[in-house]
Design a binder for these strands. Sequence first.
DNA 1: CCCGCTTCTTGACCCAGGTCAAAGACGCGG
DNA 2: CCGCGTCTTTGACCTGGGTCAAGAAGCGGG
Lengths: 206, 206
Amino acid sequence: MSSPPAAVDSLATRRLYPGGGLLFRADEPAKEFFHIVSGAVRVYKTDAQGRELEVARFGPGEFLGEAVALAGGRYPFTAEAVRETHALCFSAAGVLSAVETHPGTGRFFVDLLARKCLLLSGRLESLGLRTVRQRLARFLCASSTEQRPSVVRLKVKKGELARFLGAAGETLSRTLRQMQEDGVIEVRGASILIKDYDRLRSEAGE
Amino acid sequence: MSSPPAAVDSLATRRLYPGGGLLFRADEPAKEFFHIVSGAVRVYKTDAQGRELEVARFGPGEFLGEAVALAGGRYPFTAEAVRETHALCFSAAGVLSAVETHPGTGRFFVDLLARKCLLLSGRLESLGLRTVRQRLARFLCASSTEQRPSVVRLKVKKGELARFLGAAGETLSRTLRQMQEDGVIEVRGASILIKDYDRLRSEAGE
DNA sequence: CCCGCTTCTTGACCCAGGTCAAAGACGCGG
DNA sequence: CCGCGTCTTTGACCTGGGTCAAGAAGCGGG
């Protein structure tokens, strides 16, 4: 997960968005993509009933919109800065032509996109064939340090974690309690103590 | 979805797999990826209970394994030729170095990967927040020709379509019947007549 | 310390869709 | 035309998890 080499960074212009500012709006042609330097961006879609569905959230170091922009479509979602946010803005056309001329750039983006694909297909896999409990177990494994006993301290509120796992807040709550009753973990507010790491890993599906 | 330029094709070696032959096995380091010329490949994983879960299926013109190979991980799944299959085999290292030296190559793979990302995230979205009926509606819209009335002729057996939609065969069967009772479609064996295109599109979520 | 917000937990209820099992259908070779 | 294997449909049943609604914590401000 290397950060962009200087040659890549120099293709971008720095921008500052106030909290609530839009990086792009759904259905606009995707001409630019972003690399977040500081702050946070939430990506959402407004459905037919006018209800707003958050799809993802991005933080410092992450790229946003590369796939659509480089493939040349329209943004499927709206992206909004949650708070004041600094981002590097790349023009898709500029990057594509840099890929033609400067070899390192191609390499960098091939790598970036390949990784994104992996991330997406991993997430697809978990969403597709697993239960909330399994997803939660996987999440806890992934965020725990190797040495046991370890404590995972959540840095987002539980409701957000729930949506990230593709579940309702209530379900997460129940699932946590159940795992606690089963002696796998122990929940104290935003801190989760892992009591049986092996079992957790096996529940996550290796 | 352009096919690879000559410069890219020349990086690959042609291979022939008999039906049942493995292109790669889960957990092997991903050094190569493939472009299928003819035949078909199914990708699956064997879970803890020894049960075999099919994850995807690829046909002529499709790339397979690019993301893992270019990101440099291990194959998460096993890929097996369903029947006799011709494929172009690319070495990840070879491609990455070609990206550095030959500009057109970088452009091609950036594009390929960007598109794959879109495809994956589209699928993620449908799987995450939609019902089987909605996914089916979307599928029918996507496979119907623009002019109405149109008939979609399925080229895979319904069981396969069901798994593609992330559902059980029985559920697909029921859903089809229900849509028929609602007057949206009419099912005659493997042919589906779309009776109310607009409604179908609205059910698919625009 | 109390009030009002927001978040979290719990209970009750409901439904989409998965699994099992038993018929139909539809080939297809003999 | 018959038998047999593969698909597909149907019914019965069950469960994960979503939604609604009502508490229970927290927590910052006055």
